[in-house]
């Protein structure tokens, strides 16, 4: 069963700790993610979900613990940051597209500067990635000319083009108008179907229930509960989780 500890972990985190000043955000996180798995991370704001993701590609430096990606330690030595990050794609809540570049250039920049591809090849690969998110026809558009949903799909294409081993999604639909959420989730479902490994911090409970292999509930810097969507959303008796979900349903209703 997918929910039990995976046989071969693509990502292995042990004892990750992080605090901002005196405030502890992560209090020793152990977590494994198997290749091809979609892990949804839920929890109240301030629970440390985003910080956890940001520690994985070292936008935040964890103060203790170790992370291995594909059996290679990615914590520690600073010199390899760029290498680590090309293997880990990240999609942000605020898209973070470059406003002065077209959609195509947004995708191809890292291809030519990090992977050192020739212009034609980078452009071809960028267009292929845009094709996958259904936006090839918007290749020449600037971010300001795109809807929020389209911008987020370009941002997904930007990480997709690098063919990373692992994708991190940090609340990818939280900044979107409700009617635009669907198109982004659809792209993510397709990626899942193609066997990509994804960690998704999300408030979309329906998506977590339907698409995730495993759901992780975090609160106050620790993993409180994890399991299959069914186990989390139906069977759990954990009081903190129940209270969180109750709160959530109240808001959605």
């Amino acid at each position: 069963m997918a929910a039990s500890v995976p046989a071969k972990a693509l990502l292995r985190m042990r004892g990750i700790e992080k605090s901002f000043g005196a405030v502890p955000i992560l209090k020793g996180i152990d977590l494994d993610v198997a290749a091809g798995e979609l892990v949804a991370i839920i929890g109240p704001s301030g629970s440390g979900k985003s910080t956890l993701l940001r520690c994985i590609n070292r936008l935040e430096e964890p103060q203790a613990g170790s992370i291995h990606l594909d059996e290679v330690e990615i914590t520690g030595k600073r010199a390899t940051l760029s290498k680590i990050r090309r293997d880990i794609g990240m999609v942000f809540q605020a898209f973070n597209l470059y406003p002065h570049f077209t959609a195509e250039r947004n995708v191809s920049l890292a291809l030519s500067k990090v992977l050192k591809l020739k212009t034609a090849e980078a452009s071809e690969r960028a267009l292929a990635a845009l094709e996958q998110v259904g936006l090839r026809h918007k290749a020449k558009a600037f971010p300001a000319e795109l809807s929020g949903g389209q911008q987020q799909r370009v941002a997904i294409a930007r990480s997709m083009a690098m063919a990373p081993k692992l994708y991190l999604f940090d609340e990818p639909t939280s900044a979107l108008d409700p009617e635009l959420v669907g198109e982004v989730l659809a792209v993510m479902q397709e990626m899942k179907a193609k066997g990509q490994t994804m960690m998704v911090v999300t408030h979309e409970m329906a998506f977590a229930r339907q698409a995730a292999d495993r759901v992780i509930f975090m609160d106050e810097g620790v993993v409180v509960e994890q399991g299959t969507p069914d186990a989390i959303f139906r069977a759990s008796t954990n009081p903190r989780l129940s209270s969180f979900l109750r709160n959530y349903r109240g808001k959605e209703a």
Binding site: L59, G89, N96, Y98, L109, V114, R158
Partner: peptide
């Protein structure tokens, strides 16, 4: 915005790039 830095860094660009 900080997000612009993070967007670049997360795709493997160096600080200088």
């Amino acid at each position: 915005s900080k997000g612009q830095w993070e967007g670049g860094l997360s795709t493997g660009l160096t600080f200088t790039q």
